[in-house]
Design a protein around this nucleic acid. Structure first.
Lengths: 153, 153
DNA sequence: CTGATACTTCTAGTTAACTTGAGGTCAATA
DNA sequence: TATTGACCTCAAGTTAACTAGAAGTATCAG
């Protein structure tokens, strides 16, 4: 069951994950991944680090910050395989975060789409149109213009 | 039909949009918004700039870069109200972009959720588990680990 | 006409997320 | 054993997206 090497060098990890060496060291500094050292001070990575990196890349690609990711990952053990409980905790937290982001995106997309129907930005029936100045009355910052924190675009 | 001022000062625009003066000037440098000048060299903004800013904020909040937004906005006229055709063009482009992002997010979320069911990262039945090293055989970079460009996390 | 406030430009600083490079060490192989 | 390529640290550079500050000018209320 183990003709595969137990630990990976930074070069092997870089190649398999597609993440550059420099970035791997950077992530380690930031506490996102961890390594053990050989007698000669070289890094050796746990095979599970590949999964961590996949997770990090996926999360980054959808716009989450490294700090955010770090927080989430710090709940997962690095030296051992996560338990169902570990994973459930992380998963629950992220579901909410991701759902929120999905909602924001969908709202933006739907706004855009519905605006085609009304000739947008030029007709009174469009939501965007009405947002523009009527909102000034509701105080500085026109919160309604900000979709992620409020309701409309 | 026009007791409202035709042009806005940078201060008024900042207050109504919730975007700081400094950022408005920065956006102007980057070509995202435009202004006219008074005899005394002060900026005066078109009312439509509020809509542009709403658009910019919405797009940013979902992770699009200013360059990306700039490209999209450069198809819209700044000095006049966009036509249905203007808007349709922009909207079509963005729908694709947004759909792609929504997909990526949903995939990440669903991966996370399904992993709870299988005890993730520790059982053979989980997709994540199998991704980790079997992919090495498919060449450097293990594309399958990257959800936005490929299929699985 | 005189302040107070709002504006102007320009330079430089900040944070996130990396990347690059210098100068040196380790490890495998001919 | 020598050399080559992979590795090490540390410092500095880069890009995006702002933010802050200095020093001067406009505008408007009284």
């Amino acid at each position: 069951m183990s003709h595969l090497p137990v630990r990976l060098t930074i070069g092997q990890l870089a190649e398999r994950s597609g993440v550059p060496h420099s970035t791997l060291r950077f992530y380690e500094d930031r506490g996102l991944i961890h390594s053990e050292r050989t007698a000669g001070n070289q890094r050796r990575y746990h095979r599970a680090t590949l999964r961590r990196l996949a997770f990090i890349s996926a999360a980054q690609r959808v716009g989450l910050t490294l700090n955010h990711i770090h927080e989430a990952l710090s709940e997962l053990p690095d030296g051992r395989t996560p338990t169902v409980a570990d994973w459930t905790r992380l998963s629950d937290d992220w579901r909410m975060e991701l759902d929120t982001r999905i909602d924001a995106l969908q709202r933006l997309r739907d706004r855009l789409t519905s605006c085609i129907g009304c000739g947008c930005l030029s007709l009174k029936s469009c939501g965007l149109q009405n947002d523009d100045d009527a909102m000034a009355a509701y105080g500085p910052g026109s919160a309604m213009l900000r979709p992620a924190s409020e309701g409309g675009m």
